[in-house]
Simulated assay, not measured.
Amino acid sequence: MKTARLSADVVIALARLIWPDFVEIDGRVFLVAQYSDLKLKELRAQGFDETEAQYWMNLFPVEGLLGDEESLQPDHEDEFAAILEHSWAAKLAADYPGRRFMVKTARDGDVGDVCVVFTNEPV
């Protein structure tokens, strides 16, 4: 099997995406890479409850990560999203034993965007 050579930055970024870091704020868990105090305050100010704010903060779009649309097979984004869904669920279980998380792939039916997202019930 021949492997393509990738830069160290790309490999590390991919590893952090597949096995991400999390931060817990007020009993809610967020992706470190997506979290900001300002964004959370803005979502709350728009009237989102805590679960909704967590959902939108953790919503991670997969489209665009895998190159241009012409070179993608139809199921590549779905396959990558499924890998993220399973790896994030495993990482959340490892980092927060005994806690329950909903990790899922979400698809916008109108435009076909594929995203991965998770939420949890606060402690």
Rank of each mutant, 00 (worst) to 15 (best):
G27W: 01
N58I: 11
K104N: 02
R44P: 00
P20C: 02
F60N: 03
V103Y: 08
T105D: 13
A89C: 06
F48L: 14
V116W: 09
T51S: 05
A53T: 11
F60C: 04
K2I: 01
V111E: 13
N120H: 07
D37E: 04
A53V: 09
V111C: 08
I12M: 08
K91N: 03
L14M: 08
V111W: 13
W19C: 11
H76N: 15
E70T: 07
A15L: 01
V103P: 02
F60M: 10
R100P: 00
L31D: 12
E24D: 12
D37W: 01
A89H: 11
K2W: 01
H86V: 00
A82I: 01
C115K: 12
L6W: 09
E77V: 04
W88Q: 04
Y96E: 04
V29M: 14
L40N: 00
E85P: 00
L17C: 15
G47M: 11
T51F: 05
S71Y: 06
F101W: 04
A94W: 06
Q54G: 10
L66R: 05
R28E: 08
V32G: 11
R100H: 02
R100Q: 10
V103H: 09
P122S: 11
R16Q: 11
A81E: 15
A8H: 07
E63F: 03
R99C: 10
A90D: 12
L14R: 05
F22C: 06
L38E: 14
E69W: 04
Q54P: 02
R5T: 00
E77K: 10
A90S: 12
A94Q: 13
Y35T: 06
L31W: 13
V103W: 08
P122I: 05
E24G: 03
R99S: 15
I25P: 03
G47V: 06
R100I: 02
P20Y: 02
F118V: 14
E70W: 11
A93D: 07
F101Q: 02
E63H: 07
C115N: 13
D95H: 14
D68I: 06
N120K: 10
F48T: 02
F48N: 14
A13Q: 08
V103G: 07
S36P: 00
V103T: 05
K2C: 00
Q54H: 09
V10I: 04
F101R: 06
E79D: 00
K91V: 03
A81S: 15
L72P: 00
I12K: 13
A4C: 14
K41P: 00
D78H: 07
H76R: 14
L31F: 15
A15R: 10
L72Y: 02
Q46W: 04
D78E: 07
V10N: 04
V10A: 08
P20I: 00
V123I: 09
E42V: 02
L38V: 10
I25H: 12
F80E: 11
G98W: 09
D108I: 08
P97Q: 11
R99D: 12
M1I: 01
D75H: 09
M102A: 10
D26Q: 12
V111R: 13
P74A: 07
G98D: 03
N58F: 09
I18D: 07
H86A: 05
T105V: 15
V117F: 09
N120L: 08
V29F: 08
D26Y: 01
D108A: 13
R107L: 04
